[in-house]
Design a protein around this nucleic acid. Structure first.
Lengths: 215, 215
DNA sequence: CGACAATTTAAACGTTTGTTTTAACCGCCA
DNA sequence: TGGCGGTTAAAACAAACGTTTAAATTGTCG
């Protein structure tokens, strides 16, 4: 078993287990036994559990961010003026879905991990993500902002977080919500259908009329 | 120090610490030393850590649910026909804010705990909340649904989760988001202002036009 | 006061955690 | 063949965890 195999197997097992149980609830022993490698392999190849967590995020955030940046650049050269809101959101979803699916990875796991990064108070992970991918995030947010010139900046950013919360929360709990709806209405929902519902909801939220200030 | 004191002090400390760090990351030793009580007091008064977690949620979810039910009943008798969407959401926010503030508790902590209940995979807690407060939740969701007769049930419920995600996520991370916006725009946001931004965004999302089916 | 139940205390329980250590193993080049 | 870095292996490390035990203390009522 070569080095590359071991590193890969650890990352694969950790990604699944972290998404299922969270970071603290997943022990290195569970990860290494799932991966079929020795316990000490994590500390040997990654240094510590914290660095393993960061490596898991790096492996799927780097290609995602790269694709999103490329897609944004392509859009900017295609269209002359400012970008349309629909195009931007569609780019985001297309990159998230297609980019990950092409790697044979589950987008729901992706979202679940993203949700964990925000909700589990892993300070080191938050810092790692911000320092590594903050620029791309700000670039995308800036494009969205210029597509919404009539929304004041503070309101816009709050709505951006509303949107982020709606996306991360609903997609990271996709399986649980889907099971409830299936039981209550007998209707199955695919991930694509859910994104098709999420996109117009996000647009409606971002473009909602801004109530007059003065509270 | 009477029994009531000890139980109360443990609940107070646990509520704050759980909201700050999560359940697994908060040890009983941290809780008891913060509360100024003996380590064994938790197991003596609550039985186990799991039951302590449930007790923390019970203490703030029971009065909240009771108030919401009462507010809903009051609304139903006041207005004859079906309830307005605005009234329902305003009731929800008013109860959440005023009800908790009157107890001298922080609504942000409330939201942070609610977010943890969903994202941290504590199966026992999820079951506890559903079995205890599921009826009230379904009653409120039903009122919302009848206020949106032109939205098909499945779409409605997905939007409900979008809304829940937007609320829980943005309010539970309120301090962090507020700090970012203050640094970038020099604009302070109060919790009330944020709810005043969240309400119309939620309405816009719930009332957004439903795209034609057939995907 | 004396006794009995409730509560608090200190100490220890057995597990599990992340990490480190030391020896064994492997492929490769001299 | 012999040694040599890179990797794996088994074992042990100290620390932290939730929980339990048994003695000390407190409050209450006859």
């Amino acid at each position: 078993m070569s080095q590359l195999d071991t590193v890969q197997r650890i990352l694969d097992a950790a990604e699944v287990l972290f998404a299922e149980r969270g970071f603290t609830e997943t022990s290195l022993r569970t990860i290494t036994s799932t991966a079929g490698v020795n316990l000490a392999a994590v500390n040997y190849h990654f240094g510590s559990k914290k660095e393993l967590i960061q490596a898991v995020f790096e492996r799927f955030l780097t290609p995602f961010t790269t694709s999103l940046d490329a897609e944004l650049a392509r859009l900017a050269t295609e269209e002359e003026g400012s970008l349309q809101l629909d195009d931007l959101l569609q780019s985001l979803y297309r990159v998230a879905l297609a980019g990950l699916a092409s790697q044979g990875r589950d987008p729901r796991r992706f979202m679940r991990l993203l949700g964990l990064a925000y909700t589990q108070s892993q300070g080191h992970l938050r810092r790692f993500i911000v320092s590594r991918y903050g620029d791309s995030y700000r670039r995308f947010a800036g494009s969205l902002a210029t597509a919404l010139p009539h929304v004041d900046p503070v309101t816009f950013y709050w709505r951006l977080y509303f949107m982020l919360g709606a996306t991360v929360f609903s997609l990271s709990s996709f399986d649980a919500i889907e099971a409830i709806l299936r039981e209550d209405f007998g209707a199955e929902s695919s991930l694509e259908e859910t994104l098709a519902r999420l996109a117009p909801a996000a647009v409606a939220m971002l473009t909602a009329p801004v109530p007059a200030e003065g509270g």
